[in-house]
Computed example of a mutant assay.
Amino acid sequence: MDVQQLRQRLEHEPQSIAARLQASHIVAAKQKVELALSWQDAAANHVIITQNSPFYPPLLKQIDDAPTVLFCKGDIDILVAPSVAIVGSRDASRNGLQQAYDFAAQMAGLGIVVISGMAAGIDGAAHQGSLAAGGRTLGVLGTGVEQVYPKRHRNLFRDVIDSGCLVSEFWPDVKPFSGNFPKRNRIISGLALGTLVIEARRKSGSLITARLASEQGREVFALPGSLLAGDHQGCHDLIKNGAKLVENIADIVEELPPLLRAHLESLAIEPHLAKEDSSELPFKSLLASVGYETTAIDVVVANSGIALDLVLEQLLELELQGLVAAVPGGYVRLKRS
């Protein structure tokens, strides 16, 4: 059959061809639905939630492009609990990871669900901090819930399912695709009362989440950092544009809805929470010489006025107490948990 004959045949059979195409799409859609229902029936903690479900998160339903369906793996009760998102760099510094871990642990201690994206870096540290404090955490995926990505988080995926929930708008077996990760960010911000950004460069994907949170009418929080490195430029830009500068957990709590804030304040939340009491710190002179950014050993010696051998001895003890950490190029001071 040549091109002309084919064109003539198409002109005479438009309805039958359209009908066949429609029928094939219907069959494919039905097969997809059957696969989804089979996945849900495979385990008690496999749940498919639509917008008509009482478990569909009310905050998420308020956003303009709310997902029509959510695939959930874990405890779906936390989908309707008060929550705050923590996001930041995948290539985070030691101090950034510690901050994410500590803020998440403190939120968990207040009964706040910690939301993040299960990525390497700040995301992973936030989930781990919440779990370590006995809290519940919600992981929003840019893949299907049956895909572990990144692979190094295999154990973390298991722990989140056991003590929280994994959520995705993608079919369970959807593999990693770069375009899906920015898309899932609207769900992270949409689920939360507010989003805390820790250590983000100017082109960080975390800034997408912060922008979406602002557009959705949610609170945006940002942790400031050193001006000498580019790791916090994105956070500084957010603060310039109206995000709240955060130093401790109380800075976040005071911006939450009044009823929730009253409940948290009844748990003795004070403005100085999470700040260090310098009177209780060991080797105060030496510790004051170590910054929250990498400080070379010769700088520590010069600033403290202590002999090198004693500096090394005291730094070792401070490291064992979790107050400082050895990093390439020197030491950094860590926040006390």
Rank of each mutant, 00 (worst) to 15 (best):
H232I: 05
A28N: 09
F283I: 02
T143V: 10
P176E: 10
S168W: 00
D159L: 08
A29N: 12
Q4A: 11
N45P: 05
P150I: 03
P54A: 09
D64S: 08
I297S: 09
E247C: 08
G225D: 04
R218P: 01
G144W: 00
E13N: 14
V69C: 13
V246W: 02
E215L: 12
Q4Y: 07
R211E: 13
L260I: 05
G124D: 04
E11D: 09
D2A: 04
S304N: 14
D251W: 02
V84C: 06
E270M: 14
I112F: 06
T68H: 08
L191N: 03
T294A: 14
D251K: 04
Y101A: 07
P271N: 12
L259R: 07
Y292M: 12
L238S: 01
E11R: 14
E215F: 05
R20T: 15
L267W: 13
T137A: 05
H236M: 12
L334M: 14
A288W: 09
I17A: 10
E270R: 11
V197D: 02
G164H: 04
L59H: 07
A268Y: 07
I26L: 13
V69M: 09
L193R: 02
S266I: 10
P257G: 10
L60V: 14
S285K: 13
Q128K: 12
A81K: 09
R20S: 13
G291M: 14
S53C: 11
N241R: 09
L207Y: 00
L196C: 01
L320S: 15
A250R: 08
D173C: 06
S289M: 12
R9Y: 11
T137F: 00
R7L: 15
A288T: 12
L156E: 10
A200H: 00
S214T: 08
V299S: 15
E280S: 11
I49C: 06
Q62G: 06
D309R: 12
G190F: 02
S206P: 02
L264S: 13
A250P: 04
N185H: 04
R20V: 08
L207P: 00
E34H: 07
S83A: 11
P271K: 12
V148P: 01
Q51M: 08
F283G: 00
V47K: 07
D41F: 04
T209D: 05
L193S: 06
L59A: 07
S53V: 04
Q4F: 11
S289W: 12
A210R: 00
L323I: 09
